[in-house]
Design a protein around this nucleic acid. Sequence first.
DNA 1: TACATTAGTTAGTATTCACTAACAAAGGTA
DNA 2: TACCTTTGTTAGTGAATACTAACTAATGTA
Lengths: 194, 194
Amino acid sequence: MEYTARQIEIINAATELINQGGIQQLTTKALAEKMGFSEPAIYRHFKNKTDILSSVLNYFGMGLKTKMTELIQSEDKGIEKLKQIIDFQFEHFSNHPAIVMVIFAETSFQYEEKLSSAVHNILTNKKERVVSIIQQGQQDGSIRSDVDPNQLASVFMGSMRFTILQWRLNNYSNDLRKEGVMLRQVIEKLLRGI
Amino acid sequence: MEYTARQIEIINAATELINQGGIQQLTTKALAEKMGFSEPAIYRHFKNKTDILSSVLNYFGMGLKTKMTELIQSEDKGIEKLKQIIDFQFEHFSNHPAIVMVIFAETSFQYEEKLSSAVHNILTNKKERVVSIIQQGQQDGSIRSDVDPNQLASVFMGSMRFTILQWRLNNYSNDLRKEGVMLRQVIEKLLRGI
DNA sequence: TACATTAGTTAGTATTCACTAACAAAGGTA
DNA sequence: TACCTTTGTTAGTGAATACTAACTAATGTA
């Protein structure tokens, strides 16, 4: 589960390629070109193409997990943690727009067992953590408790994803951080406990 | 903008293939096999592969537009219309799961100008209509007016999409109609005007 | 009947793809 | 010094892909 420096370079190059034009753009030729070496050199670092793709997903999932764990362990109220997730995610995507495409490519990975389950795990894991934060918020009174936490998590994550998708489809032209601030206020109004 | 019966057959076959394994699964060979004729026969009905894909998107977009127009013209209150959109969409996806993949493949189409703009148009058009319904709801008092209608539309559409995505990633195993009923209740609670 | 159009066929092509075989240079270590 | 490992190279391969050329059978129409 650990990657060499060279592997991480390749993972980043692959992520950028996916961002530029979907997974179809991720060919061994393009990847080698981006890395500045020949095609066969790729196979010194990864077994095959599926191995590269699953590493891209896994590497991204690891980073996300670490951050979410940090957040959960803090002393803040539930609603505060949700707002911090929005800030973190939107800031992160602003700085690394390439990753966005990887996340939204979830359905493209479907044809490969190994990849689709990787995507599924990332999403499920994140949702579980959001649900537990919402439950905590319902107990500390910062989040309304008249709605099922699982449903609220879908609303929360769906809103975030949709906002990011719009930004992506608009070719990153608007300021995602501002969108984040606005979304944070809306989520607060809609989920705030009485 | 009108399609022959044979073209619609091909559009449906293509949609199913995309559903089964993403756009990568949509090859001329697979499409011909599914249609029960030879590969070159495809080119009697479509100019090229991009033409097929943009027809798939366009055909889907047309159906969606028609339904949304009907909804908007009714006499119901804003919140009622939103609930009807959920019912319609979830029922529709339950009956035609193949289409789900096409919608969520938006990022895969990005590398082709013609296709990415088609996707963008479908989404933008739908969102505009949702925004106008929400504005109406804020005026007739059925939807809270302390939140920007554009933001509420993102929450609404994002929640729907996320619920459908989860259903998809779970291999359609849960009952989407039930999910729709639950989502409808949540949306009502969160958006309801005072 | 003569002819044109439509919608299919078989055969084939250039290109691209992921991946392999075999070799080479550099560095670490016995 | 001798040798092994690591990380790259060049050259090439079989399979798949989108698409074309040329032909044909059926159907509608002048």
